[in-house]
Simulated assay, not measured.
Amino acid sequence: MKAHDFVRPGNLAEARALQKALAEAVVLEGNPSPARYIVALDASHPTRFSRQKGPSVAVAVLWDQAQGAALEVAAVQMDEAELFPYLPGYLSFREAPLYLAALAQLSHAPEVLLVDGQGIAHPRRLGIAAHLGVHLDLPSIGVAKTLLFGRPEEELPLEAGSAVRLMDGETQIGWVYRSRAGVRPLVVSPGHRVGLAESLAFVRSLVGKTRLPEPLRLAHLQAGAKRRLAAAERKGEVRGNVR
Score class of each variant (00 low, 15 high):
residue 32 P to Y: 12
residue 216 L to W: 11
residue 78 M to F: 09
residue 11 N to I: 07
residue 202 F to V: 00
residue 217 R to N: 09
residue 163 A to S: 12
residue 196 L to C: 04
residue 9 P to F: 05
residue 134 V to D: 03
residue 183 V to T: 14
residue 118 Q to H: 15
residue 106 L to W: 09
residue 55 P to M: 07
residue 200 L to E: 05
residue 36 R to P: 03
residue 213 P to S: 13
residue 37 Y to A: 08
residue 161 G to K: 07
residue 200 L to C: 11
residue 164 V to L: 05
residue 171 T to K: 15
residue 44 S to N: 02
residue 120 I to W: 04
residue 34 P to A: 10
residue 118 Q to I: 00
residue 77 Q to D: 04
residue 15 A to L: 09
residue 14 E to Y: 12
residue 80 E to P: 01
residue 110 P to T: 10
residue 107 S to M: 01
residue 157 P to G: 04
residue 201 A to V: 03
residue 201 A to L: 14
residue 194 V to S: 08
residue 226 K to V: 05
residue 92 S to M: 12
residue 6 F to D: 02
residue 14 E to P: 13
residue 22 L to D: 00
residue 2 K to A: 13
residue 41 L to S: 14
residue 97 P to R: 13
residue 150 G to N: 02
residue 149 F to G: 02
residue 166 L to N: 02
residue 180 R to E: 05
residue 157 P to C: 04
residue 233 E to G: 11
residue 3 A to P: 03
residue 27 V to R: 15
residue 71 L to G: 05
residue 20 K to A: 14
residue 174 G to Q: 05
residue 182 G to H: 11
residue 140 S to Y: 11
residue 202 F to R: 01
residue 155 E to F: 00
residue 92 S to F: 10
residue 62 L to Q: 08
residue 46 P to R: 03
residue 114 L to M: 13
residue 16 R to P: 00
residue 201 A to T: 09
residue 41 L to F: 10
residue 12 L to R: 15
residue 96 A to V: 14
residue 34 P to L: 10
residue 2 K to V: 04
residue 190 P to Q: 03
residue 104 A to N: 12
residue 17 A to W: 00
residue 144 A to R: 10
residue 95 E to D: 07
residue 40 A to C: 09
residue 204 R to K: 15
residue 57 V to W: 11
residue 212 L to S: 08
residue 210 T to I: 02
residue 186 L to P: 06
residue 30 G to H: 06
residue 195 G to T: 03
residue 117 G to W: 12
residue 27 V to K: 15
residue 41 L to N: 09
residue 71 L to D: 04
residue 111 E to M: 10
residue 193 R to Y: 03
residue 118 Q to P: 00
residue 137 D to L: 02
residue 176 V to S: 00
residue 196 L to Y: 01
residue 214 E to W: 13
residue 73 V to G: 01
residue 153 E to S: 15
residue 233 E to A: 12
residue 76 V to G: 14
residue 91 L to S: 07
residue 183 V to C: 09
residue 184 R to L: 09
residue 101 A to H: 14
residue 106 L to T: 06
residue 39 V to N: 09
residue 27 V to Y: 01
residue 186 L to S: 05
residue 98 L to N: 05
residue 191 G to H: 06
residue 187 V to A: 01
residue 230 A to I: 08
residue 191 G to R: 07
residue 232 A to T: 08
residue 107 S to H: 12
residue 11 N to W: 10
residue 25 A to S: 10
residue 109 A to I: 02
residue 187 V to S: 00
residue 237 E to K: 15
residue 112 V to C: 12
residue 147 L to D: 01
residue 145 K to Y: 04
residue 169 G to R: 02
residue 212 L to W: 14
residue 101 A to I: 00
residue 141 I to F: 12
residue 11 N to Q: 08
residue 185 P to A: 02
residue 82 E to S: 15
residue 242 V to A: 10
residue 125 R to A: 10
residue 9 P to L: 11
residue 9 P to D: 04
residue 103 L to K: 07
residue 124 R to F: 05
residue 123 P to S: 04
residue 177 Y to F: 15
residue 166 L to H: 05
residue 218 L to K: 10
residue 101 A to Q: 14
residue 34 P to V: 08
residue 76 V to T: 14
residue 122 H to W: 02
residue 222 Q to G: 00
